[in-house]
Structures are given as structure tokens and as C-alpha cells.
Amino acid sequence: MTTSNDSHWQEIVARRPMTDREQRELAAWLAKHPESAEHWAGELALTEALRKLSPAPVPSNFVARVMAEVRRSEPAPRRSRPLAGWRWWTDWHHALPLGAALAALALTLAIQAHHRAQLRVEVAEGLSALPLEGLAQLPFWQDLEPIQALPEGPLPSGRDLLAALE
């Protein structure tokens, strides 16, 4: 037996009893190396003693108790799960009212944007109808206060605006 074989057999006896063949090989080797007999007797005796150890007592209802404990502790992680990430989005209880609120907000913003755009077009059309040659000499361009003083609400037509400025 070489040192590597010895190490290999040490690994075997640490895990399991030797097979008959392994025992015969070991006995043949020990016949030539009686000085190692005590060491191997101890190794084999320890392996046998460990193998004979009774299994730890396990209650016959252990599985049932584990399952009961799992069910008992189950609601906690499931309750906390929806807020943990984006998974809550799939929960329609949360998604439905939130989606409706977002849709209403988007619709309001779209209506407002459309109204402003329409207003801008109307003002542009009114201004484009003004006589531009006379407009450049008007003194109000040096003082913007009249423009700032225009009333709130719908803008007047271009002609009314010009009349007001004059």
C-alpha cells in the first residue's frame, strides 16, 4: 500500500465500512506491516461505532408540524410581497383605481393642451389679418404696459386689439 492508497482508504473508512474486498486487501497489507495494525483497528472500530449510532429521534408528525408552521407563517411574506417590487402592478386590486386616476389625469392634460393650441391658432390668424405697414410706427412698441394690461379671459380679435392699443 502506498501513502496515496493509505490516504484513499482513510477517506473510505471515514465515510463507510469497507467492502469485503477492501478488507481483504487491508488484511493482506497488515500481515506485512503489523506495526500499523493498531492504527487500523482503531479506524475500523470508530467507523463501525459511528455507523451503529441510532438515528436521531424524529417525531412521526414532524412533516405535519413543519407544514403547519409554513402555512402559519405564509401570509406574512405574501402580504409584504406586493410592495417589494413591481409585482404589485399585476395585482388588479391596486392597479385598477390607480390606472383610472392616471387615465383621467392624462385626458385632462390632453384637453388643456388642445385648447391652448386652438387659442394660439386663433390669435395667430387674427394678427396675420392686421395692416403690418402701419403697425411698425405705433408708439406702443416702446411701452409694453398696454399689452400687459389686457384683460384676462379670451383674447379679443386682431382689429379690436389694434383699436385698443391706438
Partner: peptide, 26 residues
């Protein structure tokens, strides 16, 4: 859950062997 119960059934003894011989109280 049935698969989990099978796992517990399969590994209860090895786990208990480790813990029973590591802790002084069964």
C-alpha cells in the same frame, strides 16, 4: 406544497442527525 412535504420527508432524518448531535437538547 406537496413537493415541499416530500422534501421534508426525505431530509428530516439527515438534518435531525446533524442538529441532534450538535445541540445538547433534543
Amino acid at each position: 406544497d406537496e413537493a415541499f412535504a416530500t422534501l421534508v420527508e426525505r431530509y428530516q432524518q439527515p438534518v435531525m442527525n446533524l442538529l441532534y448531535r450538535s445541540l445538547p437538547d433534543a
